[in-house]
Measured scan of single mutants.
Amino acid sequence: KVTYHVPNEEFARKLYKKAVDANLNVEIRVENGQFIIHIE
């Protein structure tokens, strides 16, 4: 399980798409202006 803290929405979207394309379980949320992405 990996967690990324991404300040940039564009990068967060790319990361999310890559994980989904790889059939990984992804959860994304915004906290204090940062995008928190959990990948399992």
Rank of each mutant, 00 (worst) to 15 (best):
K1V: 11
K1D: 07
K1T: 11
K1Y: 13
K1L: 09
K1H: 12
K1C: 15
V2E: 05
V2Y: 12
V2M: 09
V2L: 10
V2R: 11
V2F: 12
T3Y: 09
T3L: 08
T3P: 04
T3A: 05
T3E: 06
T3W: 11
T3R: 06
T3C: 15
Y4G: 03
Y4L: 12
Y4S: 02
Y4N: 03
Y4P: 02
Y4V: 10
Y4Q: 03
H5P: 04
H5E: 06
H5L: 12
H5Q: 09
V6P: 06
V6A: 11
V6D: 05
V6M: 09
V6Y: 06
V6S: 10
V6Q: 03
V6I: 11
V6T: 15
V6G: 12
P7D: 15
P7M: 14
P7K: 15
N8A: 05
N8M: 10
N8C: 15
N8H: 05
N8V: 07
N8K: 03
E9K: 06
E9R: 04
E9Y: 12
E9H: 05
E9D: 04
E9W: 14
E10M: 06
E10K: 06
E10W: 11
E10S: 08
E10A: 10
E10D: 09
E10T: 06
E10R: 06
F11A: 14
F11S: 10
F11C: 15
F11G: 04
F11Y: 12
F11R: 07
F11H: 08
A12Q: 02
A12L: 12
A12S: 01
A12V: 06
A12Y: 08
R13I: 09
R13W: 14
R13L: 12
R13M: 13
R13Q: 07
R13D: 02
K14E: 11
K14H: 07
K14I: 12
K14T: 08
K14V: 10
K14Y: 14
K14S: 08
K14N: 07
L15V: 06
L15W: 05
L15C: 15
L15S: 01
L15E: 02
L15M: 07
L15D: 01
L15Q: 02
Y16K: 02
Y16H: 02
Y16N: 01
Y16C: 11
Y16Q: 02
Y16I: 08
K17Q: 12
K17T: 04
K17C: 13
K17W: 10
K17R: 10
K17D: 06
K18T: 08
K18A: 14
K18I: 13
K18W: 15
K18C: 15
K18H: 08
K18V: 08
K18E: 09
K18R: 10
A19G: 03
A19R: 04
A19N: 02
A19S: 04
A19C: 14
A19Q: 02
V20N: 03
V20L: 14
V20S: 05
D21R: 11
D21F: 10
D21A: 13
D21Y: 09
A22E: 05
A22W: 13
A22M: 13
A22T: 03
A22I: 11
A22K: 06
A22Y: 09
A22P: 01
A22N: 07
N23F: 15
N23I: 15
N23Q: 09
N23V: 14
N23G: 15
N23S: 06
N23L: 13
N23H: 12
L24I: 05
L24F: 08
L24W: 08
N25Q: 12
N25E: 07
N25M: 12
N25V: 12
N25H: 14
N25W: 14
N25Y: 13
N25F: 12
V26G: 01
V26Y: 02
V26R: 00
V26F: 06
V26I: 06
V26S: 01
V26K: 00
V26P: 03
E27S: 14
E27L: 09
E27P: 00
E27F: 13
E27A: 07
I28L: 11
I28C: 15
I28K: 00
I28H: 00
I28W: 07
I28D: 00
I28E: 00
R29P: 00
R29A: 04
R29S: 08
R29W: 12
R29D: 02
V30P: 02
V30T: 05
V30A: 05
V30K: 08
V30Y: 14
V30W: 13
E31L: 11
E31I: 12
E31D: 05
E31V: 12
E31Q: 08
E31A: 08
E31H: 09
N32Y: 07
N32V: 05
N32L: 07
N32T: 04
N32E: 05
N32S: 05
G33S: 03
G33P: 00
G33H: 03
G33T: 03
Q34D: 04
Q34M: 15
Q34A: 10
Q34H: 11
Q34S: 10
Q34R: 10
F35L: 07
F35W: 15
F35Q: 00
F35D: 00
F35C: 05
F35P: 00
F35A: 01
I36M: 05
I36G: 01
I36L: 05
I36R: 03
I36N: 01
I36Y: 11
I36W: 08
I37L: 08
I37M: 03
I37Y: 01
I37T: 00
I37P: 00
I37F: 03
H38V: 15
H38L: 14
H38F: 13
H38A: 12
H38I: 15
H38D: 11
I39A: 01
I39H: 01
I39L: 04
E40H: 12
E40W: 15
E40G: 11
E40L: 12
E40D: 10
E40Q: 11
